[in-house]
Amino acid sequence: MQVTFKISRFDPQQEEAKQHYKSYTVQTSPGMTVLDALNEIKWHQDGTLSYRKSCRSGICGSCAMKINGINGLACETQIEPMKKKTIVLDPLPSFEVIKDLAVNMDPFFEHLAAVKPYLINEEPPPDRERLQSPEEFKRISDPIACILCMSCTSSCPSFWTDPEYIGPAALYKAYRYEFDTRDKGSEERLEALDNRHGLWRCHTIFNCMDACPKNLKITHGISLLKRKVIAEKY
């Protein structure tokens, strides 16, 4: 099958740098992914194309981009089942583009850091492991699979209008620790969560869940987090 890839290009080093599309034709085969096609283009047609890649097995989160209008991982997206003659690739929306399909990830990770995404528990640990039941583990088994690929936050309308909104990924990470029975950090995390750019900017739009390549129940987790904060406050 022959597929045309219409790829968003941007090179800040050129005078009057402007985002534009450039088309490439790739001969696809069954099993070929969007990342394979990008590699084919970069390695054999145009070495100046920039995008991030690493594990190519859907676990590192490097290659998230907008594929035909929907955020997802290039390495996990099979081409032929899409049954499209033209596939449009854009960088993740609402992040600054560094070059072509690579965006500036700093704001995303600053928001993540803001929710104190680590176990807070000042009690001295026991000699062995802290105990946790399988049911308690199950409550956090969904968010721990998050790969921080930025697909969700970049697809969130609340984030599009409010760049200070910490976004679904950071909130789901907060959920992961808030609902970890070993954690005692609720009070410290409250400041980042309970403000106008925090938890309450989530209007349960569900774009994040549509975009998530790992099919995580992000909105569900954020809703439980809202309830927890309200229960603690009122």
Partner: peptide
């Protein structure tokens, strides 16, 4: 585990 790694449990 003390640093926060979520392990599956018995």
């Amino acid at each position: 585990e003390h640093l926060g790694v979520p392990f599956s449990r018995t």
